[in-house]
Design a protein around this nucleic acid. Structure first.
Lengths: 231, 231
DNA sequence: CGAAGCCTTGATGCGCCTCAACGTACGTGG
DNA sequence: CCACGTACGTTGAGGCGCATCAAGGCTTCG
């Protein structure tokens, strides 16, 4: 596919501190791909042939258990790397990446990773920073699941989504991607029923407005109190 | 402290594929430290001044929540790296590392990390492999906490410990470090009471033998069935 | 020998899952 | 464009898994 201009991406965290020409050289070797809503960028347990940068859209990273249950590991927003299995010495992807909306991604061949590391150490160290914060996130979530109750976890999940993908509107902060009760339940280890009940209660209290695949946070601070004020 | 011989560590995974003399050079710059049972190798939220290699013993990595609850993130066995915050661009340790028994650790100044990466790329890539498998572990645990019931999680935790630190005895596989019901509960997000009841039941069934801070797995396959046979 | 730490076991209650039924928005094809 | 099917959302009733509260026994160490 055609080449992209370095200026389009040079402000993204992965390219921080890289020379403009190095960025251009990297981009030249990437393929740019359009992914339709609902389609997979890569699939769980499939050979890790590439690593990716999400240019536009939102991607859901999902794990499926042997007996078919789904768990949402995280949402990727535009500008983030994903599928960086080879950076961690893995040969398969540990989860599936599903486009939550129509997306544009850049893909580099996985075999290029070692070369990239040695040639662009800045890119590599930014990648590892990303990995570090994801490990931190994962560990936070374990603590959360071990110590907090459903209501707190759901409040937290909604707040995180609002912080990550929120857009200010006159009503409040709109979570800018289609998200169902089921999705929230898969992020928090509960059922869509419980999420629905919580959202109804919060709506009655005027803290959120929500509808079909749509959530607007009106009174974030109230949710923060729920989520565990001391933090 | 005195210098160590490279032959002592050259078979450990972190030093795989490194030249003997490079290993020796690295070791020369490490401090070797004895840590008493119960003492901290490093503490949560403290500045990440060093990174470590556990030479001998077992270390418990623990997170404490704002309201004082503890969650055990993992156990480190001898030969593993730990406290590698700087490799991930972090300036503080995300958890505390407590010696489960008397330990010996090697410590390198954190500031050395960038130099180490560029000078010994093999060491770096092995480190990132470690990080990768820990991220994987963490994510597995999230899935587990989200989808499995306490009994399965506890069975899994016991099996993991047996696999990691188990020693064959005539009775069965002995988990070779002092571990209480409370510890298991902090690994699985439950209470010591529930763990105690489960262990009693398993003991009655003849699947384990256990006592004060001591667990022997007699019939591992029975536990595997419990933990979720399909895996 | 006392005290502290670890383990066990019972009784009780409730948070949340499960099962069930129905309402409502969406989009697709006749 | 309307009718239907499908996916999403809501709300109730019931029950169970596990936390919580409580009390007591058994090691291990100073």
């Amino acid at each position: 596919m055609g080449s992209l201009d370095a200026s389009l991406v040079c402000d993204l965290p992965p390219f921080e501190h890289m020379a403009r020409q190095d960025i251009a050289a990297l981009l030249e070797r990437a393929r740019s791909i359009r992914v339709e809503k609902g389609a997979a960028v890569f699939g769980q347990d499939e050979a890790a042939h590439s690593f990716f940068l999400l240019l536009d859209g939102h991607v859901r990273v999902v794990r499926v258990t042997p007996d078919g249950e789904q768990v949402i590991a995280r949402y990727i927003s535009s500008g983030e790397l994903m599928g960086i299995a080879q950076a961690l010495g893995r040969s398969t992807y540990p989860a599936s990446a599903i486009a939550a909306v129509d997306c544009v991604v850049l893909a580099w061949p996985g075999a290029m990773w070692t070369e990239v590391v040695s040639r662009y150490p800045g890119f590599a160290s930014n990648t590892y920073k990303t990995v570090g914060s994801r490990l931190q996130d994962a560990q936070d979530r374990i603590v959360e699941m071990a110590t907090e109750r459903v209501e707190q976890r759901v409040a937290n999940a909604v707040l995180k989504l609002a912080a990550q993908t929120g857009r200010r509107t006159e009503e409040g902060i709109l979570i800018d991607l289609p998200i169902s009760r089921q999705d929230i339940s898969e992020m928090t280890g509960t059922t869509l029923h419980t999420v629905s009940r919580l959202m109804s209660a919060w709506e009655a209290a005027g803290w959120v407005k929500s509808g079909r695949q749509r959530i607007v946070v009106v009174e974030g601070h109230k949710l923060m109190l729920l989520a565990g004020g001391a933090k």
